[in-house]
Design a protein around this nucleic acid. Sequence first.
DNA 1: CCAAAAGTGTTACCATTACACCCATGC
DNA 2: GCATGGGTGTAATGGTAACACTTTTGG
Lengths: 256, 256
Amino acid sequence: MRILKEVYDSRHNEFLPQFSVECVILAFNDNVLKVLLRRVDMGDNWILPWGLVHKEEDVDETAERVLKESTSIENSYVKQFYLFGQKDRTDKELADKILTTIQPKDAENHWLRSRFLSLAYYALVEYGKVRMEPEEGEELSWFNVDKLPSLFAKHDQVIKIALRTIRSNIGYVPLGRKMLPEKFTMPELRAIYECILGQELDRRNFQRKMISTGLIIPLNETLKKGAHKSPHLYCFDKEKYQELLDNDQELVRIIL
Amino acid sequence: MRILKEVYDSRHNEFLPQFSVECVILAFNDNVLKVLLRRVDMGDNWILPWGLVHKEEDVDETAERVLKESTSIENSYVKQFYLFGQKDRTDKELADKILTTIQPKDAENHWLRSRFLSLAYYALVEYGKVRMEPEEGEELSWFNVDKLPSLFAKHDQVIKIALRTIRSNIGYVPLGRKMLPEKFTMPELRAIYECILGQELDRRNFQRKMISTGLIIPLNETLKKGAHKSPHLYCFDKEKYQELLDNDQELVRIIL
DNA sequence: CCAAAAGTGTTACCATTACACCCATGC
DNA sequence: GCATGGGTGTAATGGTAACACTTTTGG
């Protein structure tokens, strides 16, 4: 558990106190959305990957670091979506575990026990690119977003709010670009949107709309996969796409 | 300056350290959007109303308190929209001013000097209900959002992002409900939307759309005002409205 | 009487929706 | 051959946009 080491290294005043960053890391595989969760010492409860903010680190960098520590992925996409700041929000159980392990001198009144503010991010990653390297005693695993295990604190709420946030901003979120491989098929892209929206979308209309954005380039290749007609492969026009993303412009208009 | 008192009262460890809440308080008057700013000791720069988070206080409560302290308004509408967490974000100038005034024993290394995280809220208030009660040496004043004075730090950016956030969520933000008096006219309501969107909207289509939400009740009164035909007065169906708001549902669909 | 602002109704248009039909593949 | 999934075209629909005319009021 990385945080243990960091705190233990008596660098605990290298962090901003009473503040953490947690990441809802999302990927798409097997036609469902997955979220990455962590468990320590085979405990009962899973938890979102999280971290503390170094004193010389932007909070966005913290989120990128947390993402990298759990997935080995860099330069992907992280976006803050909510600061959870209720006064009773604290991971007492977790603090106990950490503090009894590392036994700092101020364990009794250590700030880890006190109230926490948590800034939540969602991250979109390509499932196939993820390389998990859990630490000793740590476990990392994907879960379907609609079949979550027992979670610490109210982390299931955090995940729900992440999904709702993405849903309500769906036209601005680079779902396909960040969750699909370089080359992808239209049914795959559509499936992501259907998962997020929780409803089916018309095949043909979806395709038309996506093509009409001008952000998607058809390739002269098909994907041989199932026992059916091979779907075409596409890729994104990365430059155009990035420009819209950088300026917070709408990528595609989805109306519900 | 309230914060001075609070810190001075040696209750400085009653706050979460290195964390502040700042409010972009918006109102509508004279057909333009106004933002409330604060200035201390007739200094050169204005600043957004802000505050520290009490240890036993939700961050939302802090925002409500900051709003109340500057406008006397309670039970209005505050919404967090972004946490500013760059590593170089600190109000050195402000910290100096506070610390030289109150001279705490740990002034040199006081956490007020260190890096700050700021959670930004926007608040929507009814202009006519605002009662400013500035403290000694403190000044409060409205400014047109497009004619801002010189601001501390990057607070003009914060205001811009607040407006952009509202714009991109425009259908979900209770603009009229929170910024207009009990009874209002359709041209007034439209003017707010035009300010936020930065473009004119067709009178008739706007009216139709608003009425069709079912959230607006026409009254059998008109407002006698200018040298023109008196516009009808309307009020909101508060119950229906609140229900949508509570469930994060769309109030009205504005398409651009 | 005129200018300015507000109320109401109607039409044209375009984007979304809802389909139907054909093609490719593996069993 | 057939079931399944993918590709493409078209007609119907419904909401939005554009606009004309009337009414009211103060100067």
